[in-house]
Simulated assay, not measured.
Amino acid sequence: MHPHPAFNIASVSNDIRTALQAKIDSKTKPLGALGQLERAALRIGLVQQTLSPALNRPAVLVFAGDHGIVAEGVSPYPQAVTYQMVLNFLAGGAAINVFARQHGMALRVVDAGVNGDFDPHPSLVGAKIGKGTRSFLSAPAMSREQCQQALEKGAALAKAEIAAGSNVLGFGEMGIGNTTSAAALMSIFCGLPPEQCVGRGTGLDDAGVQKKAAIVQQALALHGLDPSDPVGVLAAVGGFEIAMMAGAMLGAAESKALLLIDGFIASAALLTASRLAPEILDYCIFTHCSGEAGHTRLLNALGAEPLLDLGMRLGEGTGTAIAYPLVQSSVNFLNEMASFESAGVSERED
């Protein structure tokens, strides 16, 4: 057995499932007519263990970190873009800023391991583990201790957000090179060949994608990883921001909050988290299917049913913010819509 941080996540109790489903079914609509919104309402009611769920103080945590693997040419963008984009987040100019503002979601930008220093800023959480990971083609991306530290810091950050009144958290990331890390994690945990996991990332051509798959293949051969040791796998091929996001997801589920899962990288963080505590999946709403090639397979591995498929592949938690109004709609219909009985509407006769 390999030691790893103990996350004590309770499976969601099904005691009120029948009552919740009955409440959903009694609304003035044909059975199942609200489709995925009904399944989301059921999930949220089960997470909150109530027939009248509420969404409080939604927040998006965006974790940023740099990746040594960028030196191997896995991205068309230079590493400096991670630092520059964090400044863009702090200035309010990125896509996640626009969508979080639109939907009244608080935004926290977490420096998990960017290769650069930032001045203090009200939206910035300094949690730097190191100035970027090592290239996992030559060494483990981080030490086991750094990985544990990232997981624990992430959990503490999520719990602080929840202690301040949030019960729904979205998770996003920024890190040039991080789709390569995510593809490596997926390949190991899903037992899939790298070519079924890698995609274009921020815009690779066909030759770039092949090269990326070869790099992941080489890394997996080098480290000889054991999927039953999730912390070892994460330390070898992960990123500081992916590890910290996984920890934040685990901490949020431990506190019984609702988790909004973004695209490919966030799903890879969740996949890793689910190998530490499988019960975490009870707390998740999958906001969208990303345009990144491996995401559909990754969602299938997680048994996920994403709300949206808009061909988005931006990261930053943008999928969680875009889908948030649908999550609100699922709660609102459950709480506000009349039942056949209360509205005096006749039910089906068959």
Rank of each mutant, 00 (worst) to 15 (best):
V216R: 03
Q36Y: 05
S290H: 06
G263E: 07
M1T: 08
L42Q: 05
K128F: 05
A127T: 10
I280W: 03
A155G: 14
T180S: 08
A10W: 12
A156D: 11
A155P: 15
P30D: 10
N115D: 02
S342D: 14
L220V: 14
S13G: 05
A257D: 13
F136Q: 06
D119Y: 02
L260T: 14
I44F: 03
N178I: 05
N332L: 13
G170A: 04
E292P: 11
F333T: 09
M85R: 06
V345W: 04
D350P: 09
N88G: 06
S330N: 07
G238S: 12
Y77P: 07
S143T: 15
Q146D: 12
L276H: 03
A158F: 08
V62T: 14
V331P: 02
E349C: 05
L185S: 09
I162A: 05
V209Y: 09
P53S: 02
A253Q: 08
A64I: 00
I16W: 02
A266H: 10
V12T: 07
S166F: 03
K153N: 15
V114R: 00
A6N: 13
M244V: 02
V233S: 12
L157M: 11
A106C: 04
E279N: 13
A221Q: 15
V12Q: 04
G68M: 03
D262T: 10
A6L: 14
P5H: 00
P278D: 02
L314T: 00
H223P: 14
T179D: 08
F7K: 05
T50H: 00
G113T: 12
P306C: 02
P140G: 01
L260A: 13
G45D: 07
K23Q: 12
A221Y: 11
A158S: 13
L310I: 14
M312P: 13
G203R: 14
V60G: 09
S329G: 08
T50M: 00
